[in-house]
Structure formats: structure tokens, C-alpha cells
Nucleic acid binder design. Structure first.
Lengths: 297, 297
DNA sequence: TCCTATCCATAGTCATAAACTATGGAAATC
DNA sequence: GATTTCCATAGTTTATGACTATGGATAGGA
């Protein structure tokens, strides 16, 4: 007897149909069918009559269904109790990509400390592909990343669509132009982050959409390095608006491109089936609040 | 969260030691260790302090242990309830090898019908290797087979040590001898069952122990065929005492070999972890009773 | 009554998880 | 200080659960 088998039984009982149940629990119908058969063999009882297009619980199936529901409820509560226990310290791990971490997390963590002093937040800054894997493997509770992401094991909640701004040095000719469009960038040298960066991928996709390949002159590991080099005038870049810093005004100019400004969509991901602790819920509420603020500005 | 992980947690809690716990649940220590680590990662809490040679529950671990025990108890009861339900028909499948099935099962089933009218017994006659696999895969609840058997997934309960008797035709020279020993058989033609038969294997092993290879003249599929051929005088055989039939006296002579009579040990096997239903328990009690009777005769 | 659609079960294949063995590091014991 | 006993990691193998393709049975509609 396995937990996924109990879930499948409950799903079939509630939908009346193996196919519908398989859609509900995100497996293929033959897979669910086989697991129900395996379970029936193990407990030595038929749990469902297969009546043409209907799956109907047998008498034994009705008895078993109550037990299955109780077991699943207990399992849910086992995880919940650890997450919500009044005396156990709450601790979560949050991931964020490098073009989000230094700009969003400080505000989020500050608010969390103010409102939920008992909540400990560990941070992991990493690239999207690593954070995706970490979420799947339960190494982080939540991760803030840029879309697109495809992994059916993850729950993906969009947060905001964030403008990406052209950034040039104050002495750069483009800094003086009234209107800058994508084709204006075709001959420029780009300073961007490394190949693991989803922002770097977004920039290359945006340029591709405008039928040119960006001339990548510099690959950097940190946004601060990108800013420093752009400020020196050796190239241009594109950064998310959230990366904008008041101090940047000394040497940088942020420009919203005319005729279709690039954007990226930020989302928060977590494991589809992993219980979400009270601490994770608290953090998520603050994250949603901050995302709404950013979207409105 | 998986059921085997809960079992491992309980085992570690009760033994205080990963190594001891792994022995208890029949997996290797690294495997248990890895599963505990995976579970801790999933629930986001340390469940055990690893203090040198001791594994001690953390506070979270103590909370979790209660839940784990409750879940495992519910799971045990889910299976038990189906097996013991007062109104659900009880039905079990019993396997037996061909040199046991026709001699033991009729008596057992008759007694079961008398004492437990609500118990339905399905029978599967097959060779040991197939019954072993069927028990592992839950296709039979119990199976009566000859030893040896090695499979850690099975629970093996010896039933009785059964004499194997030499069988010859009434006109056979050995029928008239006062004392027959193993070397007397070295030049005889043997009539035995097919290569899948564990009895055939036992005969060959017995002859091997006496430093000769049996001359196998006939391979048969049924004990009745063996008896018929031996009665005709075309060869000799060795059959378990339980196969002896009053009608055999017309044409056969059963002889207990002097100087070390061959035996075989019958056992009943079942799946180690599968819940044993009330019906299976009832049958098993009758089987033990009959085995004791046979052992005394 | 026949055709189509919708269901479940089987077969074959593939990917992943859980098992293994080998082994290393740390701590306890002698 | 050496040895023993524990747990964790790494690499490999095996078993399980997933997939797709497809067939048989049944229900519904024309």
C-alpha cells in the first residue's frame, strides 16, 4: 500500500471515472489503472466495479475509502503540524535569481521580521535552472524566478510583469536621444550577465525578435559589475526596473524603449505536493503585497 | 512522504540507531539513512540528532513520530478491516505444489468448510518457483511448498519434515527385499516428475549425496502417471508419504529406505509485509493442526 | 442496427527512486 | 593512540511508476 495509491482511490471515488481521476492527480490513465489494480491485488479485494463508463465503489471499496481518506488526512496533518507547531521555530528557505535577490529580498525580509518575529528565513541566491531543481527536490520552500518555467512538479504563481530598461552611461549618445527603439541597439556592444542568467536569455530573445543578434562584449557575474562597466561607457545593457538604484543617477541613464519595451514575468515557484507551512504562507503574503506595489508603480 | 519512510522513522526511534533500525526493516543502512534525509528535507525539519553513536529524536521528531505511528496504525487497520470485516465475504487464495495439493488440500478445505462456512478458498496448484513469485507479488495469500526457499520478502514457517518413500511395482525384485538401501537404487530406472518439480530436485540431491546420478527414464507431469508407470514395472520412484493412497496397494509397494531415508521439509510461505487477514489466519490454524497430525503418524 | 466515442486494461519502453556495495569521516570505546 | 561503530556520500544496479500505443468492451447517437 502506497500513499499515491490511496490518492488515486479517493480521486476515482470522487470522479466516478478512471480517466477523470487520472487528470485530477496528474498521471496518465493507464498508470492510475495499474496502481488501482496493484492495490486491489494487495488488499485482496475489488474496490471498484467497472460498469461500462462508470467506476462504482464496491462494498469493500466504501469501507476502504473511509480509511484512505483518514490516512491522507493524517499525512497532511503530519506535515502541517511540523510547519505550524506553536513552539517549534518556523524556518523557511527562499530562493531568488541574482537579478531579483538584492532588490526584492531585503524589503521582503525586513517586513517579515517586523510582522513575524518567529519566522527565520534562509536565502539562496542562484540561477533559475538551479532554483527550479532545488524547488523540485525540496531544498527551497519558495523561489522567485523569471518565466518561462515548465515542470509539472512545480506550482507556478505569476507575480508581476516587470519592465526591462535600457541602461547606458551618461556620456553615451543614446542617453541624449529623445526616443530610442530596438533597432538603435543593433550596432551597440552589450554588457550582460553570464550564460546561466535568465535575464541574459531574455535579452537575447528580445534582440532576436527584432532580427539582430546582440553584440556581447562583456559577460559579468554581478549586476553591480554590469552597472560599473556601462557607467564607464564601454557598452550598454538592459536591466530590470527593480534593479534601479538612486545612486545610479551619478553615472547611468535608464531608458524605456519606444515601440515595444522588453519585459519579463516574475513568478514564485514551489513544489506542487509539498505541504506549505504557515511560515511559507506568511512570506508568500508579503511577497504578493510587494509585487502588487511594484506593479502599480 | 512515503510509507516506507514512516516505517524507517519509527524503527530508528525505537532502536536509537540507524544501523539497528535498518536491520529491523530489512534494508541496508545507507538506504535507510538516505530515506530519513529525504524525509527531513521534505518536511523541512530535522527529525533526529546524530549524536556520535546515538540517534535521538529532536523536538520536531517527537511530534512527527506520533503522527507517523498513527498513520502506520491506520494503514494496518485499513488492510485489517477489509480482511476481517463481519459482512464482507472472506476469500483467500492458497497455493500448493503438485505433490502436496491433491493430498493435503482436500482435508484442509473440508475442515475449513465445516468450521468457517464464510471463508472462500481459491486454490492454485503450481510449482514452487511460481508459487514463490506469486506469494511475493500478492497473487496468493499462503502457499505450501517444499524447502529450501530464500527470499527475504517472504515469511517462511516450517510445517513438517515428511518422509520420502521408495515406490516400486509389486513384481519388482526390490519389493521382496527385506532391507533396501540407497546404493541399491544406483542401477535402477527412475520415473520422476518434470524438471520444475521440487520433489524431482530433492530426489536428484538425495542420489547425489549417495554418489550416484539417478537414471531418469521417464519424466511425468502428474503423480498419478508416475504411479501408473511404476505399477507397470518400467521403473521406480520416490514419493512423499502423504501421496500414499489405499488403492496403491493393488500394484505398488512403498518402502522406507534403510540407512538414511530421504525427507523433505514442507513449509507455508506468505508475503512478509502483507496484512494477514482473519481468513488466512483461520486457514493457517487448520494447516498447522493437520501438519501436527501428519508429523505424529 | 451500425458507427463512433469513451471508457479501462495490457504490453512494451523509459526514467526515476530506492535499493545495493564500497568507503570515508567522526566519535566513542578500549 | 588504535580500533570499533556509527552515519553520510558516491557510484551502480534493480525495481517501480511513469509514459505511449493500442485493443476490447460498452454506451450513446444517428
Amino acid at each position: 500500500m502506497e500513499i499515491h495509491q490511496l490518492r488515486y482511490v479517493v480521486a476515482v471515488a470522487e470522479t466516478g471515472n478512471f480517466t477523470r481521476a487520472s487528470e485530477r492527480v496528474n498521471v496518465s490513465q493507464p498508470s492510475l489503472s495499474q496502481q488501482i489494480i496493484n492495490l486491489e491485488s494487495e488488499v485482496g479485494r475489488k474496490l471498484f466495479h467497472r460498469l461500462g463508463r462508470k467506476a462504482v465503489l464496491t462494498e469493500a471499496g466504501e469501507v476502504f475509502l473511509e480509511r484512505a481518506r483518514r490516512i491522507l488526512f493524517e499525512i497532511e496533518n503530519a506535515a502541517k503540524e511540523l510547519g505550524d507547531h506553536p513552539t517549534l521555530e518556523r524556518r523557511i528557505t527562499v530562493g531568488a535569481i541574482p537579478t531579483v535577490a538584492p532588490y526584492l529580498l531585503p524589503t521582503l525580509i525586513t517586513r517579515c521580521r517586523e510582522r513575524h518575529p518567529n519566522l527565520q528565513i534562509d536565502v539562496r541566491e542562484d540561477f533559475r535552472i538551479h532554483l527550479t531543481r532545488a524547488a523540485v527536490e525540496g531544498e527551497v520552500d519558495l523561489a522567485i524566478v523569471a518565466l518561462p518555467i515548465k515542470d509539472i512538479r512545480l506550482s507556478i504563481e505569476p507575480l508581476l510583469t516587470e519592465p526591462l530598461l535600457l541602461v547606458v552611461g551618461k556620456q553615451h549618445p543614446l542617453a541624449l536621444k529623445q526616443r530610442v527603439e530596438a533597432p538603435d541597439l543593433a550596432e551597440e556592444n552589450f554588457v550582460i550577465l553570464g550564460p546561466s542568467s535568465s535575464l541574459a536569455s531574455s535579452i537575447q530573445r528580445f534582440c532576436g525578435d527584432h532580427h539582430f543578434e546582440p553584440r556581447v562584449g562583456f559577460r559579468c557575474a554581478q549586476v553591480a559589475t554590469v552597472k560599473a562597466l556601462v557607467g564607464l561607457g564601454v557598452g550598454i545593457s538592459i536591466l530590470p526596473q527593480v534593479a534601479r538604484d538612486p545612486e545610479d543617477a551619478n553615472s547611468l541613464v535608464y531608458i524605456k524603449l519606444s515601440g515595444g519595451s522588453p519585459t519579463r514575468e516574475l513568478a514564485v515557484i514551489r513544489h506542487q505536493q509539498r505541504y506549505q507551512s504557515r511560515g511559507a504562507e506568511q512570506f508568500l503574503a508579503i511577497l504578493r503585497e510587494r509585487a502588487a506595489e511594484l506593479a502599480a508603480s
